[in-house]
C-alpha cells in the first residue's frame, strides 16, 4: 500500500452551517484582513479565497513561504476562473470613453489560472501548477488530475482544491441558470484544498493520513438520461479497489439539480442496495459550485469512523460523472 495516494490534510473556508435557501451565501472572509495588505492590492476574491483556503495546510505540510519548493504543486478546480474579473474588465473597455482606460494590473485576474499562479507565488511552490475547469465537478477533476500526476511522479505533493467566489457577475450568472432550471438559487462560497501525497511519503514525514484514496475516476455520459454510466463508473472504482458494495459504510451525492440527483440516487441504490441512504450535499450547503465536491468530501469524512469506507458520487449537469472511494484514516 506504500504507493497508495493519501489525503494527508484538508483545509477549508466555507459554510460550516447549513446555507439558507434562496441565497448566495457570502463568507465573512475579507482579503486584506486575512492575507494582509502586501501583495493583495489587485487581487480578486477568487484568488484570495484560494490562497486563504489552502493556508491551514502549510504548517503541517512543511511549507513555509520562504523556501522555494520544486516538488510541490497546486491544482485548482474552477469552472470559469473569476467570471467577475473577466466580464468586468471587458465592461470597463466598453463603458468608458476610451477602451484603454482599464487598469492593466487587473488583466492577469482575467485568466482562469490566476488563482493557481498567484497561490504558487504566495507560497513559492514551483511544481506542476494546473487549473482545471469542469463545471460543478471541478474539485473532483482537480483531485483526479492530481492523483494521475502523483502516480507518474510529476510531484511529491499536490495541493488540490475547488474554489467558488461570490461576486456580482457570478451571482447573476448562477441566478439565471437556476431560473432556467426551475430550481431555487441556493449557492455557497467556498475554498477547500486537500494535500495529496503517497502513503510512503506521508508516513516518512510523520503525517497521519485523513484518508486513503482507494479509487477515483471521472468520465462523461453523453446520454445523460439514465443512471447506467454512473452505475458502471462506481462499479469500476469499487472493482479497481477490490472493495465490495457491502463494505461501503457511507455515501454522499452532490444533489445539485433535480434530474441529476435522481440519477445519482438510482446509481447508488443499484450499486449499494436499495437501503443505502446517501447524504445529499445540496440539501445542507446548497450548490458549492467549483468547490461543491469538496463540501461532499467533508461531509463524507465527518460521517465515517476510523477505517470506514466512503463513496462520493457526482452526476454533473453537462454530462460529467465522477466516483471517489476513500478509506478514512486512523485519527
Amino acid at each position: 500500500m506504500t504507493d497508495a495516494i493519501v489525503i494527508s490534510g484538508l483545509s477549508h473556508i466555507g459554510p460550516d452551517t447549513p446555507t439558507p435557501p434562496a441565497t448566495f451565501s457570502r463568507l465573512s472572509f475579507e482579503t486584506r484582513e486575512t492575507l494582509g495588505k502586501k501583495g493583495t492590492r489587485n487581487m480578486d476574491r477568487l484568488t484570495a479565497l484560494a490562497i486563504g483556503g489552502m493556508a491551514d495546510l502549510m504548517p503541517t505540510m512543511g511549507i513555509d513561504r520562504e523556501t522555494p519548493r520544486d516538488d510541490v504543486g497546486i491544482v485548482v478546480g474552477t469552472a470559469q476562473g473569476s467570471i467577475d474579473s473577466i466580464v468586468r474588465f471587458t465592461y470597463e473597455t466598453l463603458a468608458y470613453d476610451r477602451p484603454d482606460f482599464v487598469n492593466p494590473a487587473l488583466f492577469p485576474n482575467t485568466v482562469m489560472n490566476c488563482a493557481a499562479g498567484q497561490a504558487a507565488i504566495w507560497y513559492r511552490l514551483r511544481g506542476p501548477n494546473t487549473t482545471i475547469s469542469c463545471h460543478e465537478m471541478s474539485f473532483l477533476a482537480a483531485l483526479e488530475y492530481s492523483h494521475i500526476q502523483l502516480r507518474r511522479g510529476g510531484a511529491q505533493m499536490l495541493l488540490a482544491g475547488g474554489v467558488e467566489e461570490h461576486s456580482e457577475v457570478g451571482e447573476a450568472a448562477a441566478t439565471l441558470i437556476a431560473g432556467q432550471a426551475g430550481t431555487e438559487p441556493r449557492f455557497a462560497e467556498c475554498s477547500t484544498f486537500v494535500a495529496l501525497e503517497t502513503a510512503a511519503q506521508a508516513q516518512a514525514q510523520g503525517r497521519t493520513a485523513l484518508a486513503e484514496v482507494l479509487g477515483v475516476r471521472i468520465a462523461f455520459d453523453p446520454d445523460a438520461g439514465s443512471a447506467d454510466a454512473l452505475t458502471d463508473l462506481i462499479a469500476e472504482v469499487l472493482d479497481g479497489a477490490g472493495v465490495t458494495a457491502d463494505a461501503v459504510d457511507a455515501s454522499v451525492m452532490s444533489a445539485c439539480w433535480p434530474d441529476q440527483r435522481a440519477l445519482e440516487r438510482e446509481a447508488i441504490a443499484r450499486t449499494l442496495g436499495p437501503d443505502a441512504a446517501p447524504m445529499a450535499t445540496f440539501d445542507v450547503y446548497g450548490n458549492g459550485g467549483s468547490g461543491h465536491n469538496a463540501l461532499q468530501l467533508r461531509q463524507l469524512l465527518a460521517a465515517l469512523s476510523s477505517g470506514g469506507i466512503g463513496l462520493l458520487v457526482a452526476q454533473e449537469r453537462h454530462g460529467n460523472i465522477a466516483a471517489l472511494l476513500i478509506r478514512k484514516g486512523p485519527k
Partner: peptide
C-alpha cells in the same frame, strides 16, 4: 465516454 477535462492554464 472517457473523462472530459478542460485545462485552463492559459
Amino acid at each position: 465516454r472517457g473523462a472530459s477535462r478542460t485545462i485552463s492554464t492559459a
